[in-house]
Design a protein around this nucleic acid. Structure first.
Lengths: 193, 193
DNA sequence: AAAAGTTTGTACCGATAGGTACAAGATGGG
DNA sequence: CCCATCTTGTACCTATCGGTACAAACTTTT
């Protein structure tokens, strides 16, 4: 009953939608831009996303969140080797954000009033990231209070590095900042573990 | 010939314009919103800013830049007491960004394509902030390479703290992060000076 | 290959976007 | 007090916005 397969389906349009939202922001991403980015006509977009732009963004956020849960959060939450997990996290994040050339769609949504409709999801994304990382540091032997502080600093620092790298048009600043954040975290666990 | 004084002039409309641009972003700030924020009709706005939204944003950026130059950059560049200057910088910045509730209009412009028209100004803002802070750290005795790295980290960290505080709807995270950045910088100069 | 269902382009909708025109009102110099 | 200048609200313009309607084209099932 449900196994209809089309040339394109909803899921496979999400990466292109995400890229368009990242590049133009929620308000700035016009239906024309979304149509061009996905290669789908308006009719198709509204067929897959009857709720319009808002449903598209919701789906994109769910998709992005899924990626982070699987690639970043779960490994931190079920960590066995904290140092390796932290290194992997920074590697994955650096690749994902293309060394800061690629905007964090979740972070940028929180900045202006257009993103208020998604504020719960935005908040939960950061809360989970920070607490997953803090858990990992605790497993590595860091005291809970320090672990939480350092996690907050690292997640926040990554967002800042994206802002700065975009502003300067320079990947290397992202890489320097992220490398230092990584060292700080590794220091905290090697000092206690 | 020039000393005509009106009920309102261009300059005094800038804070309200800035606030509207911060809240809605460049694309999201409609003329209706800008008109409401300033209390000026469309006619007045286009009288003061014939170039439309773009000229308004340009004027806002110049205004913001002026504030940062006077309050933040110049004191760092002509520093005599590095520790005091750094403390003052963090105090002023925390007040200016309202502990992260207020978005950095320069940083947010760099994030989406709407801000490309202002990319030179955005870049120069961050370059000057970082180099002014690095100079201050060097005066405090920090080695040049370290001074530059730490400055980059601090400026980037402030931007990240804004993103995180907005996303979490929580000022305290901003304050914790900024306090730690401040300690890091003060450590670097007390260790060498 | 006909039927049933999906996907898609096109045309269209009202609303609103940014911007212009301009006459009426306010202001200050002489 | 009057005139030149500046300021302002209103009306209006075109383009485009997000969204809808729907018939044509395409898949898939049978």
């Amino acid at each position: 009953m449900s196994s209809k397969r089309a040339l394109t389906d909803r899921e496979s349009a999400l990466p292109a939608l995400a890229e368009a939202f990242r590049e133009h922001g929620f308000e700035g991403a016009t239906l024309a831009a979304l149509s061009k980015a996905t290669g789908l006509g308006k009719g198709s977009l509204y067929n897959f996303f009857p709720g319009g732009k808002e449903e598209m963004m919701e789906a994109v956020l769910e998709n992005v969140d899924g990626w982070f849960v699987n690639t970043i959060f779960l490994p931190l939450e079920h960590v066995v080797d904290p140092a390796a997990a932290i290194t992997a996290m920074f590697d994955d994040v650096t690749a994902y954000f293309r060394s800061g050339r690629r905007v964090c769609i979740v972070g940028s949504l929180g900045l202006n009033s257009a993103g208020e409709a998604f504020s719960v999801r935005v908040k939960e994304y950061f809360v989970r990231w920070i607490s997953a990382l803090a858990h990992c540091l605790e497993v590595g032997g860091a005291p809970p209070a320090l672990a939480l502080d350092l996690s907050e600093e690292a997640v926040s620092g990554i967002q800042g590095a994206i802002v700065l790298a975009r502003a300067l048009g320079d990947d290397t600043s992202f890489q320097r900042i992220v490398r230092r954040l990584q060292s700080t975290l590794l220091d905290a666990i090697s000092r206690s573990g």
